[in-house]
Amino acid sequence: MSFCFNDANVAKIEALKKRYPSAQALSLPCLWMVQYQEGYISLDAIDVIAEVTDTPAMEIYRVATFYTMFHLEPTTQKRVLVCKTLSCKLCGSDAVLEQLKKHDVLVEHVECLGSCGTAPVMQIDDVNYENLTPTKVDAIVEGLR
């Protein structure tokens, strides 16, 4: 299956090219665009990004595997990022994780999400849900349907 950027993303890429001294700088923006467009980053998409950024495909692949937020495999489940770092841990992230196990979601145990003052936190579709309790977790996940 081959990959093509949709029209909106093609326009975005053209605009971005003018904002950087080198096309290679577009590799992260392009990886994000692919992920939002397709849900994950396929090897075909990496080849297309390689062309857009005038960078070897291997380099794009290396970049994609370096950053934890890029997904190279598709999933049908909803991804839920749960912070496991210290402040969240001190404020009950273990209970959040336990509660999430009861739901059909893909839980990713991630490092600090920058919500230490409103811990514990989880992130779904780029939105942070803070000051969580198991009850809140249930309500939020139920609300996703």
Binding site: R19, Y20, A25, L28, P29, L31, W32, F66, Y67, T68, M69, F70, V110, E111, C112
Partner: peptide, 12 residues
């Protein structure tokens, strides 16, 4: 003066 926001992707 231009300002461009550039998003990282999960790397401390």
């Amino acid at each position: 003066v231009d300002v461009t926001l550039h998003r990282g992707a999960g790397a401390y």
